[in-house]
Amino acid sequence: MEPEGSDPKVTAKQEEKGTQSTSLTARVREEGLAIKEQATEEIKNLRDPRDTQLWKSIFRVSHDRSDPRNRSLAILSNVFLHLHPAKINRDAVRYNFTWGMGGITFYLFIVLTFTGVLLMFYYHPTKVQAFRDILYLEHDVPFGKLLRNMHRWAAHLMIITTWLHMFRVVLTGSYKRPREFNWCVGVVLLVLTMLLSFTGYLLPDDQLGFWAVTVGTNMARATPMLGSEGPFGPQLGMTPFNDVRFGLLGGSVVDANALLRSYIWHCIGIPLVASIFMAVHFWRIRKDGGISGPAPVQLEAEMKPVKKPSVLVTLMGNGNGAKPQVTTGAKPKEEKRVTPVS
C-alpha cells in the first residue's frame, strides 16, 4: 500500500487549492501520518528477521526447511560444520559403534582453550606470584575456583577420552588402509595431549606439581647420549648444565625458568602444534573416506589372493611346511599334525 502523501493526484489537488486550504499544521499532520504508515510497515517486515538483508547476508540458507538441498547446504555453507560430509552412513550415527570419543576429545580441547584463556587473565608465570595467583583465583575471583576445577577435570577427561578413542579405533580396525597415516597423526595428538597436561601440572607452583615435574624431568637426565647420567652421556661431554634436561627446564633445577618454559609450552607452543595436527587429523578423516563404519562384514573367502605367499608361513613350527592355499581358490590341504577338532 502506498502512503497517501506520495499520491501525485492528491498533491496536485492541494497545489490547485493554493495556500488557503493547506495550513502548515495540516501538512505536518499529513506527512506525519505517511511516516507512521511506512514505519509500521517496515516494523511489520522486521517481525520475521529471516527476511531482512542483515539476516540473509549472514545465513545463506534456511536451516528449518527439510528439503535435501537445504540440509546439505546447511553443512556445506557453514565454516564450523563444513568438515562434515553432507550425508553419512545411516549407521554411523550409532553411539554404540562410534562411542563419540573423538568428537568429545575435540570438544574438551575447546572447553580447555576457553577456560585456559580465562585463567591466563589471572596468572603470572613467576615464582613470586604463581602460587598466590592460584590462591587469589580460588578465594577472590568470582567463579575462579569453578574455572580452575573445570580446567583440571576437563584435562583429565580429555586424556581418558583420547585413550578410549584409540581403543575403539583398534577394535573396529579403523586404522587399516587407507587410514594408516591418520592413525599416526592420532598417536602424535595422543602424546601432545599428555604433554599439554604435564606442562600444566607445574603451573600452580605447588608441591604436587613441583615434585611431579622433578620426577618426570629427572628421567630426561638418563637419556642415552643426551643426558648427563644416561648411557654414553658423560663420554659425550654431557653435564647437568648442558644436557637435554637443562634444555627442558632452562636450568639445572625446577625453578623460575622451568615455570616460564612450562607456561609457554602449555599456553602457546603445544596448543599451536596440536591445532595443526588436529586440522590434519580431521581433514584426513574426510579425505580417507569419512568414518570407517559400521561397514558390512567381509568374509575370509573374499580376501584377495596374494601373488606370492610370504616365506614366513613355511618357517618354524607350522607343521611339515604345509603351504596355505592363498593363491588358488582350492581347499587347504589336510595337515597331518593338526588334530581334527571333534
Binding site: R71, I75, L81, H84, A86, K87, I88, N89, A92
Partner: peptide
Amino acid sequence: RELHVWPFLV
C-alpha cells in the same frame, strides 16, 4: 543408506 548430517549427526 545415508542420512543427512544436518540434523541427524549435528
